[in-house]
């Protein structure tokens, strides 16, 4: 048990929480935007995967990690755009469309990887670039905080900025207002001339944009190469985080961190003699526990309210 605490209460662990939260957070923000527009993007997993490969391929051929990042984001947005086109234009069911995207991404990325590198497992033979890590002046010299918050990949900082951007966008901008109105009462939006389809298109494209950033981080930050199915369920966890976060920006961010922490813990515990399979279940066990805690607290709240009513009457 003491060795467990030795693992958790270290600045390295706190640092790694932020590190592994990044892709989940990006994808969860993507899930948030599309869900608020009333359309659930379950293609996030596939979109991240395609973006991860695109980043590697583009950066390898252009020699620039930044162009690679653009390629990844563009690919993510494009795939989401295709999903939007099928569901909003041809009225394919979003779940079917999303499943198709995920399956296509899983197989398609391996196919393209093989075409370009002759390897079905990873992109080791491609000279792909990595996005830089950033040391933050002043902060990096503060004890405890410095080692936790400084020295992260540039995308990790972008994910934190993205939280504020998304929060502001949803709360304060006309687009945010329209997204929320479409999600809550599409007829109301339609009746004042807001095009539901256009808003949902925009939301899905933004959703793909953020998932694309998450994908880029996977292959150009978290790791420095693409490997087969490397997103490993993060797109799905992001969807869970969004709904556990009750579709609010703050809630989604906090639950993403929770999942990130569980993930980091699973990584850290691998040094202890606990079966790897058991550790691997940690993020998922966290999900279940989180949902139970949420349900219990909600029903407590209801009971308290009733009790209050009773006292008064």
């Amino acid at each position: 048990m003491s060795s467990l605490f030795n693992v958790i209460f270290t600045t390295e662990f706190a640092f790694s929480v932020l590190r592994v939260t990044t892709p989940i957070l990006f994808a969860a923000l993507g899930a948030l935007i599309s869900n608020r527009a009333g359309i659930i993007n379950i293609g996030l997993e596939g979109i991240m995967l395609v973006a991860a490969l695109s980043g590697v391929v583009v950066s390898a051929y252009t020699g620039s990690s930044w162009v690679g990042l653009m390629g990844a984001v563009l690919a993510g947005t494009l795939i989401s755009g295709i999903l939007a086109f099928f569901t909003l234009h041809f009225k394919t069911h979003i779940i079917l469309g999303g499943v198709a995207i995920n399956m296509f991404a899983s197989g398609g990325t391996v196919f393209i990887l093989y075409l370009l590198s002759g390897d079905k497992g990873s992109s080791t033979s491609l000279p792909s670039k990595v996005l830089p890590s950033v040391d933050i002046p002043l902060l990096k010299d503060i004890p405890v905080l410095g080692p936790i918050f400084s020295g992260h990949n540039v995308l990790t900082y972008m994910s934190i900025i993205a939280v504020f951007v998304v929060y502001y966008m949803l709360k304060r901008t006309p687009l945010g207002l329209r997204i929320r109105s479409v999600g809550e009462n599409p007829q109301a939006a339609q009746s004042v001339g807001v095009s539901v389809v256009k808003v949902q298109y925009t939301a899905l494209l933004l959703s793909g944009f953020f998932a694309g950033l998450g994908g880029a981080y996977m292959s150009m930050g978290y790791l420095s190469l693409f490997t087969r199915d490397m997103t490993a369920g993060r797109g799905w966890i992001a969807i869970a985080a969004e709904s556990m976060g009750r579709s609010t920006t703050v809630g989604t961010t906090l639950t993403s961190l929770l999942f990130g922490a569980a993930d980091a813990l699973a990584n850290a515990l691998q040094v202890l003699k606990i079966p790897a399979e058991l550790i691997g279940t940690l993020p998922y066990v966290t999900t279940v526990i989180g949902l139970i805690v949420y349900a219990v607290s909600e029903s407590r709240k209801r009971n308290r309210k009733l009790k209050r009513l009773e006292k008064k009457s």
């Binding site: 502001y168 207002l177 109105s181 009462n185 109301a188 939006a189 009746s191 004042v192």
Partner: peptide
């Protein structure tokens, strides 16, 4: 045809929002 969680003013201007910079 109203959005319940919005304020009256937000419902009023939905689709024709007055802007200040990028925000409503």
């Amino acid at each position: 045809m109203l959005v319940p969680s919005f304020t009256v003013a937000e419902n009023m201007v939905l689709g024709m929002e007055p802007k200040k910079g990028v925000s409503i």
